[in-house]
Simulated assay, not measured.
Amino acid sequence: MSKSAPDTFDWHSSRITPATPITGSYRNTQNVRRFFLAQCGAAFKFDRPFMAWLKDGKPKTMADAVAEWKRRQDFSK
């Protein structure tokens, strides 16, 4: 069994792009909030179901997260 590389992405200060993978160390930091506000607009906010989706362990990127947040907003109208 091989060990995977350590998860060293710094969610507090590293540059987040749409291609950034959501890793096991993912945190809802101010840096992440700024990214989502820039991508989703001023209406962006975290809610429990979205945070659970972010941390469900399935492979995804920040672009996937933006698309999911927007999908949930369209669905809730």
Rank of each mutant, 00 (worst) to 15 (best):
M51P: 04
M62V: 10
K77I: 03
G24R: 10
K77A: 02
I16M: 14
D74Y: 02
S14E: 11
R34Q: 09
Y26E: 05
S2E: 09
R15F: 10
V32P: 07
A43P: 02
I16R: 07
R72P: 01
F46Y: 14
G41E: 03
L54I: 08
G57Y: 02
K45S: 14
T61F: 07
P6A: 06
A19Y: 05
K77N: 01
P6M: 06
E68L: 01
D7Q: 12
A5L: 08
Q73V: 07
K3D: 11
S25F: 00
S76L: 13
Q73N: 14
I22C: 06
R33N: 12
A5F: 08
F9L: 07
K3E: 12
I16L: 13
S2W: 09
H12L: 03
A38H: 14
T29D: 04
W11C: 00
L54S: 00
Q39L: 09
T29A: 05
S76P: 02
T61P: 05
A65R: 00
I22H: 12
T23Q: 10
F75M: 01
F35S: 11
S14T: 04
W11M: 09
A42R: 15
T61H: 08
C40E: 14
D64R: 06
Y26Q: 04
S13M: 11
K55T: 11
R27W: 06
R71H: 06
R27P: 04
V66F: 09
T20N: 10
F75H: 05
G41N: 12
Q73A: 04
M62W: 07
S25A: 14
K55C: 12
K55W: 02
M62F: 11
D7W: 09
A65P: 00
K58P: 00
G41R: 05
S14Q: 13
V32Y: 04
L37Y: 06
L54E: 01
Q39T: 10
T61K: 02
Y26C: 01
I16W: 10
F44T: 12
F36V: 07
F44W: 15
A19D: 13
S4E: 00
T29M: 08
D10L: 04
K70G: 02
Q73G: 13
R34F: 02
W11P: 00
T17G: 05
H12M: 04
D64K: 07
F50M: 06
D64V: 04
A43T: 15
F35R: 12
D7T: 10
Y26G: 01
W11Q: 08
S25I: 02
Q73M: 14
P49T: 10
A5V: 09
D7F: 01
R71C: 08
I16K: 15
G57D: 03
V32E: 11
G57T: 10
T23C: 07
F75I: 00
V66R: 02
S76F: 08
T61Y: 08
A42D: 15
T61Q: 04
W69Y: 15
Q39G: 04
R34E: 08
T8S: 13
A67D: 15
R34C: 07
R33Y: 12
L37V: 13
F9M: 01
W53T: 01
F35I: 15
D7C: 01
Y26L: 05
R48W: 03
Q39D: 10
R15T: 14
F50H: 02
R71I: 06
K3T: 09
P49K: 12
K60Q: 11
W53Q: 04
Q39F: 07
S2I: 02
L37I: 15
Q39W: 11
I16G: 13
M1I: 05
P21N: 07
T17V: 05
R34V: 05
